[in-house]
Design a protein around this nucleic acid. Sequence first.
RNA 1: GCGCGUGUAGCUCAGUUGGAUAGAGCGUCUGCCUCCGGAGCAGAAGGUCGCAGGUUCGAGUCCUGCCAUGCGCACCA
Length: 593
Amino acid sequence: MRPAPADPTARPAASPHRAAPPARPRRPRASDRAPSFPRDSRLVNQAEALRAEIARAARALGAPDDSTPVLERPRDPSHGDWATNVAMTLAKPLGRKPRDIAEALLGAMDLPSVGVIAADIAGPGFLNFRLDPGFLARGLLPMLANPDAWGRHDIGHGERVVVEFVSANPTGPLHVGHGRQAALGDAISTLLEWTGWAVDREFYYNDAGAQIANLAKSTQARVRELAGQALEIPEGGYHGEYIREIAQAYIAQHPDDAAGDDLAAMQAFAVAALRHEQDLDLQAFGVKFNTYYLESSLYTDGRVNTTVDALRASGHTYEEEGALFLRTTDFGDDKDRVMKKSAAKGGDYTYFVPDVAYHVTKWERGYHRAINVQGADHHSTITRVRAGLQALDIGIPKGYPDYVLHQMVTVMKGGEEVKISKRAGSYVTVRDLIDEVGRDAVRYFYLMRRGDSQLVFDIDLARSQSEENPVYYVQMAHARMSGIFRVGEIDVATVTGEGVELAVLSEPAELELIKQLLDFPSTVRGAAENLEPHRVAAWLLETARAGHTWYHKHHVLGEPEDITRARLVLARATQLGLAAGLRILGLSAPERM
RNA sequence: GCGCGUGUAGCUCAGUUGGAUAGAGCGUCUGCCUCCGGAGCAGAAGGUCGCAGGUUCGAGUCCUGCCAUGCGCACCA
């Protein structure tokens, strides 16, 4: 069992005691994004260079300084490598026809300096650019020179953010919904790290309250059953097989209480056993948390009481029929919520009160951004927790914390829905999935869809080792690229691209692959800003496809030397790109399969 | 009834923050195996983007109203 709770002072905040810090926007929005164009020569890639040049020309024509040229890769290759719609968007502010503006822009741009070899005006005013192949391929060089930096951004400026996920009650093994949270939370955390945030992954244990009491009574029922009494699992208790195992272990270690009279001891024992079990589940899944926070500690250290007192003082509470209410309707809820039950109902605090106290600690621990990953069935907590934080009026911004909700998971096997697990009884566990299909496949399947669509986990597909399984398809692409260096006995460290004529990478499949790889940084950025790891999964699949296509069509080894040298650069870049994407999602990048 | 989601190819899903002829995988059909790994590749068919309005140069994407569907709406957590 871990020492609990996480020591809030273990990692000093930047300024934990600053009074009422300025509110931070919850997340960058399109409208917040500074239309900044790098003006130095160390541009991230060609796209940025081209964008900057378009912006420069646009300003020269009198466009407002904050106009942001949108650059995109046309679906139709005949439209060039990059296209922009600035001429259309500038039509109104400049009071000119889009096509006229497009023409003027072309005249004002220094095309060769950004690698453009052909540009034309199409349709209502699109500007299409075709890049010099060699110029395009040189965009891969920074990747080879510094693989660890490729795709990273500094959006967070090192600010601290806490991502809370899984946060299961220690009342049973983790179920498939927790698994989705684990995969999502871990990938979102990694994405935030890649974009310049100082991330802490936190697990909040609901180890207090009614569910834990139920756990204790369920354990007691099993202990007594083992002592020869009739089994009487209490209402709302836990029926899973694992409770019996815990009871057996309890009796073995507490021979003096074979009758099951010490409820407190059984509770402590069961919680410890299940926390250990959940740790093993997470270990099997490869998810690590920096901090664990125990709900029970909020009671023992007085934070719950402090929070309740502060809420009372805020004037947003009232008593009715012996219960204490928080007037959450002051903050957009549709009805007020009970904070403290009436004496007749036991007089306990309802669950969201410690939750509010807990989120106060997040703020006080210096996290001015907090993200909670939860199942959609916990949706109703959002309004309550936020209302509580607002009622306290201690400078916490309105949208704090941020929530990423995911929809339910159903598991399919043999064309039928799987609903039960042997050990847990009433639900399928993460461990069941990992045992069936392996960690990598579980992670990928969890992450390949948007969180807010329901997920059907197809065990048969996930365990199939063929091209129809996207995990194998992606990992195979990486293994193939690795295989080139293995077979050619080439040390990848020698593949730097320096002095290599990359213009020979002119085959359509090569250009396609290069452009796909160059998309990686913006994919990472978009995925991080929107907290949507599935974008990386989609990128991986497309990149793998482009890689397989290229690999099949063109040989790297055994070609004329200049071609081999250039293609080794592309193979290395593909290998690195795939490995980076896989790493973000928490998957391995095997060298051979 | 109210709140939050979701409705896109036969199936499972993307859709670059409003762009050009809506994409991918699987499935189906047609081809291709002496190759750095065929655990692969090339191609084809397949769509009134739930329905109806609206906003504008332009809508799968934004707005409104319906329809279907998932979750939630406790002095449970």
